[in-house]
């Protein structure tokens, strides 16, 4: 555990922030009790730190628990799911024990979220104005006029044209990219200190994807915002993030500065993930895919969850979950190959 605390993020270092991180997740466990004897361990002991001004990414296949980690931080896990253990400290307050009312006050104001599917995340029955004003009015006591002015300013700042007309539009009148910009503007409307972006570009066209990523980068730099971004696309992570956590079957298997993890990946899963991205070098050659399926989260193997698909699994892999090992300053991995090495 001590390894990940020695974070050496670019921004963190440059901001010179000391003491407790903005967000500090320790041993988070979110389980879904789906049957009499069936428990799905969606998040199973995740550690994560986000310092002020830092962009942290979570990468992994779908179903690895990365989205569930985000929803757990916002305490928005629906039954039959439940946070069963661990701690989430945010701005030096514990979130796991907060009441629902306190959490509601915090959501959208101090931690805001950008969603996976902009096509369905705006309410189809209300205008953009209504939704933005509702959001602002929920958290700040301002007049309708002030709120409208703020909405106009925000919408313009995320690069939307013809903002005054846009306010009276309904979601169906906007393109996917425009909707995601509106959702980002809404997320920023109460000046949050942490922005959680759950696959913010997955549902968009390729050209629009890069525009949204540029927008997020620009916002981060202008506001010195902290961002926790989730993606299955390690390219997205490499573009935006300072640090990255690779998740597999509800656990963080590798974490560290984004350059270290992408250039010298330690975990066999990370290596496989990187090998599956097409690059100019691999043009013309068949892409390597990871063999096999992600495991059933209710029947995890006793040892390393990746062992059944791992090309270099040893007998030790099957016996007990691997310990956390520091392979370089700030770069940690959970794999038996590195156990015992300093």
């Amino acid at each position: 555990m001590s390894g990940s605390e020695a974070a050496v993020g670019r921004a963190a270092a440059s901001n010179g922030s000391s003491g407790e991180p903005l967000l500090s997740v320790r041993g988070l466990k979110t389980y879904f009790e789906v049957g009499a004897k069936r428990v799905l361990k969606a998040v199973d002991g995740v550690d994560l730190d986000v310092h002020r001004g830092e962009v942290v990414g979570i990468v992994g296949e779908s179903g690895c628990g990365k989205s569930m980690t985000c929803w757990s931080i916002l305490r928005m896990i629906d039954r039959p799911g439940r946070i069963v253990g661990g701690s989430i400290r945010f701005e030096e307050e514990e979130l796991v024990t907060k009441s629902e009312t306190e959490m509601a006050r915090l959501r959208g104001s101090r931690i805001a979220m950008v969603f996976q599917n902009p096509m369905t995340s705006l309410n189809p029955a209300f205008t953009v104005r209504r939704q933005m004003l509702d959001m602002i009015a929920t958290h700040d006591r301002v007049s309708e006029r002030e709120a409208t002015d703020r909405a106009i300013e925000l919408l313009a700042s995320v690069g939307l044209p013809d903002v005054k007309r846009l306010l009276n539009d309904y979601a169906h009148q906007l393109s996917g990219g425009m909707r995601q910009r509106v959702l980002i503007a809404m997320a920023l409307s109460c000046n949050p200190s942490l922005l959680i972006a759950d696959e913010p570009t997955t549902a968009l066209d390729v050209t629009v994807q890069s525009q949204i990523l540029e927008l997020l980068e620009q916002i981060q730099q202008q506001r010195g915002l902290s961002i926790l971004i989730v993606s299955h696309d390690i390219g997205v992570i490499a573009w935006l993030c300072h640090k990255v956590a690779v998740m597999y079957a509800g656990r963080v298997v590798e974490a560290g500065p984004v350059t270290a993890v992408t250039q010298s990946p330690a975990h066999p899963y990370t290596q496989a993930l990187l090998a599956s991205i097409p690059t100019p070098d691999t043009r013309g050659r068949p892409l390597s895919a990871i063999e096999g399926q992600p495991p059933d989260l209710s029947r995890l193997p006793k040892g390393c969850a990746f062992a059944p698909r791992c090309p270099v699994a040893t007998e030790r892999s099957w016996k007990a979950p691997p310990d956390l090992t520091v392979v370089a300053p700030g770069h940690t991995v959970r794999c038996v190959l590195y156990e015992g090495t300093p």
Binding site: F32, P80, P294
Partner: peptide, 13 residues
Amino acid sequence: DQLAQIGIQEREL
């Protein structure tokens, strides 16, 4: 649907 996200169908419940 959080359950669908973690790969489980509602009717299995």
